[in-house]
Design a protein around this nucleic acid. Structure first.
Lengths: 225, 225
DNA sequence: CCAAAAGTGTTCCGTCTACACCCATGG
DNA sequence: CCATGGGTGTAGACGGAACACTTTTGG
């Protein structure tokens, strides 16, 4: 009986990437126009089919690299989306992945070639299939993660100011927090290191630049924002 | 180029169920012997292939019902497992689901027919493929969930004592908690209702039986254990 | 009568929250 | 000289953790 279904199963497997970035104090997601029928032209996440000789994780990495030129990016599985009619053209089950990138780091030309657009995660357009639901789920994951593990730094340049970090935190969670309390929590985490450098771009006085020291951070470190 | 991969994709899609139960103050998982080559006879989760005309979620429900006779069971997706060589016989990607059932509720005959075995989640045998990893991930999800949402009641009979609930909580998290503090937290949750009934099975004195009132519990209720 | 589980409050300590003013500088 | 964002400390409220004894009853 199992053999019967194996022989006749006609399900395609794809991946979709929810690529988050942080810019202009807003959490953004990178989307594009779908380049296949059905639904050609609709707003869509970037995705692709899983190849026979690669893992599902690898398919997601590859999709991201093809789009941005970036490698070794922080990426986590969001989940499988498997409704029968989620793709009107064929039976396609898709595994969604969430990637966090620094908006300044990708290859501009590649992005232009693919006509990628950064959109505010709170102002999504109509999108193909269940892609909005994928983004919502990814954002929830992100909100949970950012409080207890040092993922925020993936969205920032190597050197950042505490105000940038705070604005990022606020953008992800959709609410403002007290500056003094926020900075107090940062001080408790030794692996967020103050450098001697000053960023003069954001203010006249200048703000100290910080760096996340991944080596100093390890399993027993407490992360709490 | 996409078309090329669609045509040639040879990936099968299955589901696997991590079925948790609570018995003898231990968290258990229901496993069986694999009934297919390769790996026939190895310890394995219950699973099956996704049909062309059903959602992935539905495939998981169906698998559980075929095994236990139970419907409308609490079930959540754990994630997709997609390593290339995870199944030595074919390219199979599997979506794992976690189900919580009350050990007394399933159909004994069906379970016997399938030769299901409850094993302590802390003492798993060698298992087929990545099934141990699936169980570990499901357990982590469970530990996170049980603290903030009322899933524990899925593992208990409708009427239960506070000691049972506490032992369950301890079994999931692998550590003991203080009885008085635990009961204080229960008192704060109005949707955990004390009944007039007394359970005499567990002690000479008898213990009050409680019930989870799902109607009284709603979105704005706070759940914190 | 005693073993075994049920049931019950208070104190302490650490953590989180609320809150307002001075500083440095470019224009 | 002033507008703009950077930087700093304290007091009070709240929530979590530690902790021990009495009750009931079957055997």
């Amino acid at each position: 009986m199992n053999e019967y279904y194996i022989e006749h199963q006609k399900i395609l497997l794809s991946v979709d990437c929810i690529i988050f970035g942080f810019d202009d104090n807003k959490l953004k997601v990178l989307i594009g126009h779908r380049n296949m029928e059905p639904g050609r032209g609709a707003w869509s996440l970037y995705g692709g089919f899983v190849r026979n000789d690669e893992s599902v994780d690898h398919a997601a990495d590859r999709t991201l690299t093809e789009l941005t030129g970036m490698k070794h990016v922080y990426m986590r599985q969001v989940g499988a989306f498997g409704a029968v009619d989620r793709d009107p053209g064929a039976r396609v089950v898709s595994v969604a992945y969430c990637a966090l990138i620094n908006v300044k780091d990708y290859d501009e030309r590649l992005l232009k070639k693919h006509e990628g657009q950064w959109v505010n995660v709170d102002e999504l357009p109509e999108m193909f299939s269940d892609h909005q639901a994928m983004i919502r789920k990814a954002r929830q994951m992100m909100q949970a993660k950012i409080k207890t593990s040092p993922v925020s730094f993936q969205l920032l340049p190597e050197l950042f100011t505490l105000t940038q970090l705070q604005r990022l935190y606020e953008a992800v969670n959709g609410e403002e927090v007290d500056k003094r309390n926020f900075r107090k929590r940062i001080k408790d985490m030794d692996f967020i290191e103050k450098t001697d450098l000053i960023d003069k771009a954001s203010s006249k006085r200048g703000a100290a630049l910080y760096r996340f020291n991944a080596n100093a951070y390890d399993e027993e470190s407490k992360f709490k924002l």
